[in-house]
Nucleic acid binder design. Structure first.
Length: 276
DNA sequence: CGCGCAACCTGTCTGC
DNA sequence: TGCAGACAGGTTGCGC
């Protein structure tokens, strides 16, 4: 669920209320959350530190600490990162860990499927290396462009959807926004990546940014589990053009939206507006 | 090396 | 109603 717009929604909410705050206590409820490090080492590394910046890279949170370290978190499929005011009760169900801040407010990481992760990296070099090994450019940076898409798709036999889902192509696009971006660009998700023209790559770059922008503006998509830092649902699911709309009319031509499987994921598109 | 797919977990929904 | 099986937004690692 949580893709770039969902993570960015939470980051924007957290920044004003956690930047400059110290971590009074860190508590790991599920050791799996912070593997391969031991829970006690994770807790020790955070306690007493001040959060100086709430950042994001792709779908990762990147919290900079006052000793130069970075706390990295990923929500994976069903994770939620909640901000709890001093008086709010900690949700015990599916709780993986908490960070209690000075003054009594807390961050709670809640995750039914237990895929979510957290780790501490010692300095900016380590954090940069961690992200560089996994992620391509940020979609709103000038380094992401139609030209770049054209370059990375040359010689690729796989589907364009698989290329978009690869975080090394562009950071932060997942299954929802890949479908929405391809629809906006009028490109079939099944199309062999190497067959995209330069003009199509330009349109796809625009489609990726437009879909992500709309998602951020709607404070994310809550098909099922996603909630923002205050436990509120996003509304982007109400604006989906094709995703999760099997059988419903295409907003452009009115023909029913098709569901299929591409790159191993449920995929929605319009056969007429998105030709192979 | 590129690609496809299973695995990691748990909850929910569908069909028999 | 009960139950087996499929499926769910992400990432990683393995085998071909």
């Amino acid at each position: 669920m949580p893709e770039l717009p969902e993570v960015e929604t939470i980051r924007r909410q957290l920044a004003p209320v956690i930047e400059g705050r110290a971590i009074a206590a860190a508590c790991v409820r599920d050791p799996k959350w912070v593997q391969p490090v031991r829970s006690s080492a994770f807790e020790r590394g955070l306690t007493g530190r001040t959060i100086v910046h709430a950042g994001r890279r792709g779908k990762y949170f990147s919290f900079k600490l006052d000793d130069g370290a970075f706390l990295i978190m990923h929500l994976r499929m069903t994770g939620n990162l909640l901000y709890l005011s001093e008086s709010a009760a900690v949700p015990e169900k599916y709780l993986r860990g908490t960070l209690t801040l000075d003054g009594g407010a807390a961050l709670a990481f809640v995750d039914p499927r237990r895929f979510g992760t957290a780790l501490v990296l010692a300095d900016a070099d380590q954090a940069d290396g961690y992200f560089a090994a996994r992620l391509g450019p940020e979609p709103f940076d000038t380094s992401f462009s139609g030209d770049l898409l054209h370059a990375v798709t040359r010689g690729r036999k796989t589907s364009i959807k698989a290329v978009l889902l690869d975080q090394r192509t562009v950071a932060g696009v997942g299954n929802i926004y890949a479908d929405e971006a391809l629809y906006r660009a009028g490109i079939s998700p099944r199309r062999r990546a190497s067959r995209l023209t330069k003009a199509q790559c330009e349109r796809l770059g625009d489609g990726v940014r437009a879909a992500l922008r709309a998602g951020i503006d709607a404070k994310g998509a809550s098909i099922d589990d996603f909630r923002d830092a205050y436990g509120v649902r996003g509304s982007f699911q109400d604006q989906f053009l094709v995703h999760r709309r099997e059988g419903l009319p295409c907003p452009s031509c009115g023909l029913p939206v098709t569901k299929t499987v591409v790159a191993g994921r449920g995929t929605y598109f319009c056969r007429d507006c998105q030709r192979d």
